[in-house]
Amino acid sequence: MVKKLLKYELYAYVRTLTTMYLILIGISILCRFVQLFENDHISYSIVFWSSVIALIITVIACIGMTAIFGITRFYKNLYSAEGYLSFTLPVTPTAHLIAKTAAQVIFSAAAVLVSLIAAAIATAGEVLAELFRAGFWLAGKYFEICGGHGVFYILEILLLLLVSVIYAYLMCCTCITIGQTAKKNRVLMAFGVYFIWYFITQVVGTVMLILIAVFGEIGLLDAIAQVIADYPKAFMHVGLVGATLLFAAISAVFFFVSHRIMSRRLNLE
């Protein structure tokens, strides 16, 4: 059932975001076209840099729209009038959450991919070839320094990025889910929940900084720094895997909270 849900989620994303992606590709083609008239005149500089700025803004808009669409679709599909239809389907809240999260992750990756394609079009030709040369050279240097650990670092970073996207999406969904338990001003309540969560993370961050300062005073920081200096590669693995597990754990909490509310305290308008 999750597959069917996912299919319709993906259709919805395609319907809405395809236009944005086509606009992005169109602007990248325009940017490349402008470069065919390269010369030293100031008018060329103005037009060229304007096209580059337009491209950058469009990339940001594309990625931003993907995130915003995912969140607004979650709200509309489950907690507005559409929710009456969604929750009559023979699927569990778990299936809903998984399908929506998976669709958001897929299209976040798609937005990044389209942005990279746009960048490749905008630099097509000698510049793109040189960019690839530079990329391969840097990759060679990276593996020269990191050795076999390099592959694992890349996998760990990709996993961390994936879990970060899931964390960010589930955080917004949980804020919306908690917000809809209110009798009125549900969206405002969702923002309130978000700010409370933000406040909590800031307090935790400050406490961590105080602890680090205390560790510094008692000399523990020097010992930790020595361990890092002695085992830098292992420390990198610990850091990446630790961050991934932390985000995964918090995401699991968000998932559980959303699931609980959707199962027991659904309060549609």
Partner: peptide, 13 residues
């Protein structure tokens, strides 16, 4: 068209 662009140089490069 994309392939043809490889025949065009770039002043900055």
């Amino acid at each position: 068209l994309m392939l043809a662009l490889f025949l065009v140089g770039c002043d900055a490069l």
